[in-house]
């Protein structure tokens, strides 16, 4: 049985009137890539800061590797790698010097550190840029440097707080592949993001939080099962009347249908051949239609259905 690496119980953090974390409970197990998904301001970074003892909290407890974390829990911190949301590197040092500095905060042995730094450089693909200063790097390369600084010392737990913000697709893919590699090498990963595609792609278990509260938790499959939508059908339709839309809503397994900007979106739960039934109705009622495609539910649908709002508000 896998051991819990991080256990958050009833965590409450207030900023004056604002409740940033409202009795948050989470458990992250060894070997997981745990996704913390939520819109901006939902409390993801606050939760991460509490796990790292960067913030004092008002109530609850945070245990990392079985021990309560405190600002001076240096024996715990030496096993944690951190990639903060804001790129935290020295503008005055080169790529290599930056990685060496942060790795050196954990690894005292010079030879081992050199090996680790070189591995980190290779891991994030910055080999050509080791002598570059951060201001000469693109946004994507800078993010990669930030990751290298966080993971060079080969920690058991890696916390990545929105590491792909403002990153080009190529760098983003590289970062996501890197996270999977780190996990494959044995690291437990906590990954926060408001990009559901990324979370869907890399995370083995996901918690969705909003307004400081956990609103759902499970694997992506488990989360999708929590909602009614099994299938979403999009059809390009011209001139659909209100009566016809109402009749569509009466079809078997259809629980919702919207029509806007010549696009009909039909939400179905369960059943088979739903698309056939809908197209048959349109043909029989002489409604002309064009492009047709279906979509399986996404985490965005999960979020939308649970909270009633889009993830990227």
């Amino acid at each position: 049985m896998t051991q819990p690496v991080v256990v958050i119980e009833n965590l409450v953090k207030r900023y004056k009137e604002l409740v940033a974390l409202d009795h948050l409970n989470l458990q992250i197990n060894e070997g997981e890539i745990f996704g913390l998904l939520g819109p901006n301001g939902s409390g993801k970074t606050t939760a991460i800061s509490c796990v790292l003892a960067l913030l004092n909290f008002d109530k609850g407890s945070v245990k990392v590797f079985g021990k309560e974390i405190q600002p001076d829990s240096y024996d715990i911190k030496k096993n944690i790698g951190v990639v903060l949301q804001n790129v935290a590197v020295f503008r005055e040092l080169t790529v290599y010097e930056n990685i060496d500095y942060f790795c050196g905060l954990y690894i005292k042995d010079k030879r081992l550190r050199k090996q680790y730094v070189n591995e980190a450089v290779e891991f994030v693909g910055l080999g050509e840029y080791v002598k570059f200063y951060p201001k000469k790097l693109s946004g994507g390369l800078l993010r990669r440097l930030n990751i290298a600084c966080g993971i060079a010392h080969k920690p058991k737990l890696i916390i990545l707080d929105e590491p792909t913000v403002a990153v080009d697709p190529q760098s983003r893919n590289r970062i996501l592949e890197g996270i999977e590699d780190l996990n494959a090498q044995g690291a437990t990963v906590i990954y926060t993001s408001h990009y559901m595609e990324e979370v869907e792609q890399v995370c083995s278990r996901i918690a969705i939080i909003d307004k400081g509260r956990k609103i759902a938790e499970g694997t992506k499959e488990e989360l999708k099962k929590m909602i009614k939508t099994d299938e979403k059908i999009h059809i390009e339709v011209v001139g659909l009347s209100e009566t016809q839309l109402s009749q569509l809503r009466q079809l078997p397994h259809v629980y919702r249908a919207d029509y806007a900007a010549n696009e009909l979106t039909v939400y179905c739960n369960g059943g088979k051949h739903n698309i056939v039934h809908i197209l048959k109705y349109l043909q029989e009622n002489e409604v002309s239609f064009g492009r047709v495609y279906t979509q399986l539910p996404t985490l965005n649908d999960v979020f939308l259905e649970i909270t009633g709002k889009e993830l990227r508000d």
Partner: peptide, 12 residues
């Protein structure tokens, strides 16, 4: 940012 990053490390 640097201060926060340093605080995450194992150096007191």
């Amino acid at each position: 940012d640097i201060n926060a990053r340093n605080k995450c490390s194992s150096v007191s």
